[in-house]
């Protein structure tokens, strides 16, 4: 299970990559593995304002469906349109081509609520 050290994580199994006041968001390797073959991603709407914990998107696999909650508050600056046609990117490259959206971070303090890679690893082992 890959857990890149440079990223931040939420307990809902999302990852966050902070770049110049913006946050790239996706789901973790663990999450995609749990879901199985992803068949559909509802591409979020760019421009929407989200609070922490608001629904960002819904990911469907063959036999399950999972809501993805926004790990941070902010405006959706960019969305990964490619997921519409190629939802399998979430399985194939969850930390790369499978990114879901870029948020303009509204309150950097919220980043403190996220887990480091070490903490997420520990969280996963406790969950299991």
């Amino acid at each position: 299970m890959k857990i890149p050290a440079e990223l931040l994580y939420s307990k809902d199994h999302e990852w966050v990559k902070v770049e110049d006041g913006r946050a790239v968001v996706g789901i973790t390797d663990f999450a995609q593995d749990q879901l199985g073959d992803v068949v559909f991603v509802e591409v979020p709407e760019a421009g929407a304002e989200l609070g922490v914990g608001d629904g960002l998107t819904t990911i469907e696999s063959v036999k399950a469906v999972s809501d993805v909650y926004s790990p941070l508050g902010g405006k959706i600056a960019q969305v990964n349109e490619e997921l519409g046609d190629a939802p399998q990117l979430i399985n194939e490259d969850p930390y790369g081509k499978g990114w879901i959206a870029v948020l303009e971070i509204a309150d950097a303090a919220e980043l403190k609520g996220l887990l480091t890679a070490e903490e997420y690893k520990k969280f996963l082992s406790e969950e299991a």
Partner: peptide, 13 residues
């Protein structure tokens, strides 16, 4: 197919 729409998977949603 597209079973993720249906009650046995999505339940109240």
């Amino acid at each position: 197919t597209l079973q993720a729409r249906e009650q046995h998977i999505r339940r109240e949603k």
